[in-house]
Every structure is written in structure tokens, then in C-alpha cells.
Amino acid sequence: MSKLLGAVALAMAASAANAQTVYNTSLAPLNTATATTTTGATGTQTSSSAPSNARDTASAGNGVWFQSDVGGGATVGITTDYAHDGNGSALFETTGTSAKADLEFLFAQPLALSDLTSISYDYYRDASSTTMATLAPVMRLDISKDGLWAGSLVFENYYQQGGNAVVGDWTTVTATLDSGVIWATNSALGPKNAAADGGEKTFAEWLAGNSGHDLTVTGMSVGVGSGWTGSFKGAVDDVNVNFANGPHASYNFEVASVPEPASWAMMLGGFGLVGGMMRRRRSAIRFA
């Protein structure tokens, strides 16, 4: 059974969210000199062979999930590898310190951070992962300050429980405006990178530290990597975000049905039979 972190009220809020299914077929192809997107029976995934810190990002659009910052030998996609709440989930793999991969979502319009009521996501860490035992996929909110890009506020499992990530089981991580430990990627918001001098705060505390300024949420992402030694393999599903004035959304990653090889053979055989019948009918027509 998944280990639940947070209050029961958060789970109730998440269940009331507007559930949206994100299919693998909705991911835009990302094909460059260093990134390749493929779709097969298990789903869609994008893999990168980019060296060092080179990154590739799929075409971005408001209101859709897309592959972002994929590089250094990482893989991201929506597959059946770790089925959860359906037949699929968002797959993440890294192979070394240069690897990085996200799935990102841009809101149609900026949302006031002060209106945030809760966020949550489910993660899975495969036992084959060799990176630090504390590491698991994270969730980020992209922040603008007075209309200017100000980095991201990062929500991850480690700072909530202060221990190793759960292995081989799905785990739900939750936070509200006033609960949960969040850190910043940019000093425009305050102490960054979970600094010991006040870099671990609730969303409400980040707002208080930027009093007099307008903090808005322009997008969100889930992802792995960037400096992770060793390898990681795991997944994310059921990403929830709730704002007082909307949206109240829950995103479930699934794989669209793909016929099995035997089914494809039957379908092709059927098409051939229909074609043969049509040819025979045409040959039987005679004109006076």
C-alpha cells in the first residue's frame, strides 16, 4: 500500500479535482540530433544521447504536457512499465550525472500563488536504481515575480520525511499553502537550493518573504536528474494541483490502446478479405 504523506483533507481535495487523462499519444514528437521519440506497444518515450548539459524540449503549448529539458542519456515518456491507477504512468530514467528529464505543463494564464490550496503527486522508485537512496521524482511550480521569471519552487519527497525514498511501491506526496517543505531554484525568491539559512519553507512562507511583490504560477513540471549520480528508473502519476479559484485538476497518465501483433494480423487479414470481396463484386458487373 502506498505510504501517504499529509493530511486526510488533502486526499479528499485531490479526489474532488477535475480528473484528466493524459495519453501517451498526446506527447509531441521530439526528434533532434540528440533526442528521439518512439511509440510502441508499451507507450511513447523520448530518449536523449546529448552530452554534458545539453537539453532538448518538445514544442510547448498551454494546457498540454510535453517533454522538457531532456538530455544526458535520460528517457521520459508515458508507458505501461509501471501501471498505476490505470494501465500507465509517466516514465523517467537517468544514466548519470548529466541526465535530466521532465514532463512540463503551462497554464493558460498565470495563477496567483496565494490562491494555491494543495498539490500532490504519486511517485515510484524501481529497486534497480543506483542513485542516492534519498532521490525520487520531484514536482515544481514555475514562478514569476512581478511579471518576470523567478525560477521554480520545488516540492520533493526527501524534505517532507527526511529519509530514503520508498522503493518498489507507489508513494503519495502532498503539500498545502501552509504545510510541506519547499525550496527555490533562484535567488530572486530568496535563499536557494534548500540553503540552511532559511531555504526550506512552506509556500505561505515564500509568499511572506516576498511581501509586496506579485508571485504567480505560470506552469508546473515533474522530473528527475541533473547531478544525480548512478542511475534512476521510476515513474510519476496522479499529479494534482488545486487553486482556490481554479483550476482543480488531477492528471492521470495512460497509454492509448495498441493492438497486439495477433490483432494486427487479424485486422490486416480482414482488410484483405473485404478488398477481395469488393474486387469480385466489381468483376461480376456487366453492362449491356
Rank of each mutant, 00 (worst) to 15 (best):
L111R: 07
L111K: 10
A112R: 14
A112F: 12
L113R: 01
L113P: 08
L113A: 03
S114G: 12
S114N: 12
L116H: 05
T117E: 15
S120H: 02
S120R: 10
S120C: 04
Y121V: 10
D122T: 01
D122S: 13
Y124P: 08
Y124K: 09
R125K: 10
R125L: 03
R125Y: 01
D126F: 03
D126H: 06
S128H: 05
T131W: 08
M132Y: 15
L135D: 11
A136N: 06
M139V: 01
M139H: 01
M139T: 01
R140W: 05
L141W: 05
S144V: 14
K145V: 02
D146C: 09
D146H: 06
G147S: 08
L148C: 10
V154H: 02
V154M: 00
F155Y: 06
E156S: 14
E156P: 02
N157P: 14
N157R: 11
Y158C: 00
Y158Q: 09
Q160Y: 03
Q161M: 10
Q161Y: 08
Q161E: 10
G162Y: 11
N164W: 01
A165I: 07
V166K: 10
V167L: 11
V167S: 09
D169C: 06
W170T: 12
A175V: 07
A175M: 07
L177T: 11
L177Q: 15
D178W: 11
S179Y: 09
S179K: 14
S179G: 14
S179C: 14
V181N: 15
I182K: 00
A184T: 01
N186H: 09
A188S: 15
L189N: 05
L189Y: 02
G190C: 03
P191L: 05
P191T: 00
A195E: 10
A196I: 13
E200L: 15
E200G: 14
K201I: 05
T202W: 03
T202A: 05
F203M: 14
F203E: 00
F203A: 07
F203W: 15
A204M: 12
A204C: 02
E205M: 04
W206P: 03
W206T: 05
G209C: 09
S211K: 06
D214G: 00
D214A: 13
L215N: 06
T216Y: 02
T216F: 03
S221I: 01
V224Q: 00
W228I: 10
T229L: 10
S231F: 07
F232N: 06
K233H: 11
A235W: 01
A235P: 09
A235D: 07
D237R: 07
D237E: 04
D238C: 08
V239D: 00
N242T: 11
N242C: 06
F243Q: 05
A244S: 11
P247S: 06
P247I: 04
H248M: 14
A249E: 15
